[in-house]
Amino acid sequence: MTRTYALASVALIGTLLVGTGTAIYMARADGDDQFAQCRQGVVAGGAGAIGGPFTLVSETGETVTDADVITEPTLMYFGYTFCPDVCPLDTVRNAEAVDILEGQGISVLPTFVTVDPNRDTPEVVAAFTDNIHERMLGLTGTPEQTDAAADAYRVYYQNHDDGTDPYYLVDHTAFTYLMLPEIGFVEFFPRETSPADMAARTACFANAAS
């Protein structure tokens, strides 16, 4: 983990975290919250604070929107395929959680959104996601589309491409978002969340929404 990445992560957590819980929540905290039993921290803000409309390009080269992607509970992760450490670990963790949930009869879509669109073409993203999980959906896009999606999800990233090193790094925050169709953002998983814990908490939200 680079120093820039660590500082960015701390800054984002400091901006969004409310209360003493270990997760970040942006939904209602009153009696009307249908997911109250699933949450582990103080809830603040509104559900629209994270997430929103986006237009990206799928690993098959098709232009897709958030409505096309989030048709079932969806675990969204922002990273890049050349990432040497964090992204492979996080995406494998997400895939393991998806398999646990499948064993419980709950279908969840693992999704990978690149923050390095210059290198991560649809073909490159497809090779990466196919290696992680057969159902993982990879998304890329233009730099402008990537910026818009990252802004919507409050994702920090910094590209270190100076034109001299093809193996440049991209600093980025590494959180996974649980999105529900017609509801939007409901949960935020930090890196230390285990596959079993992610699966259990995702199942709670999925069951509460059904």
Rank of each mutant, 00 (worst) to 15 (best):
T2W: 10
T2C: 03
T4F: 08
Y5H: 13
L7G: 02
A8C: 10
S9H: 06
S9L: 12
S9K: 07
V10H: 09
A11W: 08
A11Y: 01
A11D: 00
L12T: 12
L12D: 02
L12V: 13
I13T: 06
G14S: 07
T15P: 04
T15G: 05
L16S: 05
L16R: 11
L17K: 14
G19Y: 02
T20W: 07
G21T: 11
I24M: 01
A29T: 14
D30V: 10
G31C: 14
D32V: 15
A36L: 08
A36I: 11
A36G: 13
C38P: 02
R39W: 11
Q40R: 09
G45H: 05
G48T: 00
A49H: 07
G52H: 11
P53S: 01
T55E: 05
V57H: 07
T65G: 08
D66W: 08
A67M: 15
D68R: 09
V69P: 11
T71N: 04
E72H: 08
P73Y: 04
P73W: 02
M76H: 09
Y80N: 01
P84N: 11
D85V: 15
D85F: 13
C87A: 12
T91K: 03
V92S: 13
R93L: 13
E96K: 11
A97T: 03
E102I: 14
G103K: 11
Q104G: 06
Q104F: 13
S107E: 15
S107M: 15
T111N: 02
V113I: 04
T114F: 03
V115C: 08
D116A: 13
R119K: 12
D120H: 01
T121K: 08
P122V: 07
F128S: 03
D130T: 08
I132V: 15
H133R: 10
R135P: 15
L137V: 09
G138I: 15
G141T: 06
G141K: 08
P143W: 06
E144H: 07
Q145C: 04
T146M: 14
A148N: 11
A149H: 05
A149M: 10
A150H: 03
Y153G: 03
Y156C: 01
Y157L: 04
N159Q: 15
N159F: 15
H160Q: 01
D161Q: 00
Y167W: 12
Y167N: 03
Y168N: 05
D171S: 10
H172Q: 04
T173I: 04
T173A: 00
F175E: 01
F175W: 02
T176W: 09
L180G: 02
F185V: 07
E187I: 14
F188Q: 02
P190Y: 03
R191A: 05
R191F: 01
T193A: 03
S194L: 04
A199D: 06
A200S: 03
A203K: 06
C204V: 14
C204M: 07
C204D: 02
N207L: 09
N207A: 05
A208C: 05
A209W: 06
